[in-house]
Write a protein that binds this DNA or RNA. Structure first.
Lengths: 224, 224
DNA sequence: CAGAATTGACAATCTGTATTGTCAGATAAC
DNA sequence: GTTATCTGACAATACAGATTGTCAATTCTG
């Protein structure tokens, strides 16, 4: 009934303002506060150690608002992950684009941005690298998709889906590459950044280069 | 008190036999049944979906025996993991040794064994690859150690701990390599083995080769 | 200011599983 | 056959955290 009323008001005129914001804006702000609080709390105690209560306290909101924006803890984790990953991928794409047309340069630019951000923001890094694994099939799917995007930024896919054999091999190469980069990142972050960004980038890049050159080699073999 | 009694009996004479086995043997057998049941159940519903009850049923034992052998679920997961990994590592080492002195041959032999076993035994594979991630710091530590062993089999460490800089870089290379191999394995397993073992091995090997050659290159640079 | 919408604090409930405890029946030793 | 030991089924307890519900205080509208 309150809901019907709200709908009616929304259709007729702006909802009542609170703190200068209408209902939608307030809701969006609370949602964002929860996401940021979640990143914070996950960074401290991990996803598994994070209770709804603790996140709400960190967000300075009560549980009621949690369920207003998310149907359960997992939904918030996914939102937080997408939040973190969205930014990162945008920036990496931009960095790669700014580096010009040379594949090697683009690769270095994207990796440099990646490792730089990981170092600047350890808590989101933790969400991105660690907390997202092994929660549930739904979460895994979200992660897999993000990794695909990540991979496509580092090594743009070479118009594949003709020979599904070749395509599948190329996919495994991408996956190996991303696996290598993520593992390196994980170690680097968890050991508190022992090497300089450029050194880690160099090591990570060598794995990416494999994916690039192997894919090329395999395609060339096919063309001959 | 029962414990004291057992100890005393063990020191004086063999404990009473049941089904032809003494107390120790029975305990060991139950422990093994629990481990095998756990691998089975983890393979079906995952570690997180596996209840103590379900595992005990699969093992045809009651909960009481669970706590006889393991202090909690996590302890069983670790035992199951070590059980799986122990075999695998032994076999890989043997395969590498049997392949002779050539690094490339040893590498291929070890990888071939690895992927062959993953294909033969999907459920242990799942424990090894998937279930072990993100449970707790204790479990992570066990996993990290296993990965180090895994890495050492694929690319034997080249007497490192002199220049800690070089050593750290070599470690990152190893980690990237293992990350790549595991990611590839994960994908391959979860897609139900679309490629032949030899094809996957070839792809995985290309990442291992990076680790080998990069490490060499870096060491040579240092020697000049 | 009056009245309605909105918010914050917190209590109450619900749920699921680990862990411990009880006890009757089965098994082996003598 | 008798007794001590061991086993299997299952009940009792413990517990933690998610989810829902209540209500008074606050903030806005007119």
């Amino acid at each position: 009934m309150a809901r019907v009323n709200t709908l009616f008001m929304a259709s007729s005129r702006k909802a009542r303002l609170y703190g200068g914001m209408d209902a939608e804006e307030r809701r969006a702000e609370r949602r964002l506060k929860l996401i940021n609080a979640a990143i914070e709390v996950y960074g401290e105690v991990g996803y598994r150690g994070a209770t709804v209560k603790a996140i709400c306290e960190a967000a300075e909101l009560t549980e009621r608002y949690f369920y207003e924006s998310f149907s359960n803890s997992e939904a918030l984790l996914i939102a937080a992950y997408n939040h973190v990953v969205g930014h990162l991928h945008e920036e990496m794409t931009a960095a790669a684009a700014a580096a010009g047309g040379d594949a090697e340069m683009r690769l270095r630019a994207a990796l440099t941005l990646y490792f730089t951000r990981l170092k600047e923001h350890p808590k989101p890094a933790r969400v991105f690298l660690l907390e997202i694994s092994g929660i549930s099939p739904a979460v895994d799917a979200v992660k897999l998709d993000a990794l695909r995007v990540f991979s496509d930024i580092l090594v743009p896919p070479t118009l594949d889906p003709k020979h599904s054999d070749k395509a599948a091999a190329a996919t495994l190469l991408s996956i190996g590459m991303v696996g290598a980069v993520i593992s390196i990142a994980l170690r680097w972050v968890s050991k508190q950044y022992p090497q300089a960004v450029e050194d880690v980038v160099a090591i990570a890049a060598s794995f990416c280069r494999v994916a690039l050159t192997e894919a090329d080699r395999r395609r060339d073999l096919h063309l001959l």
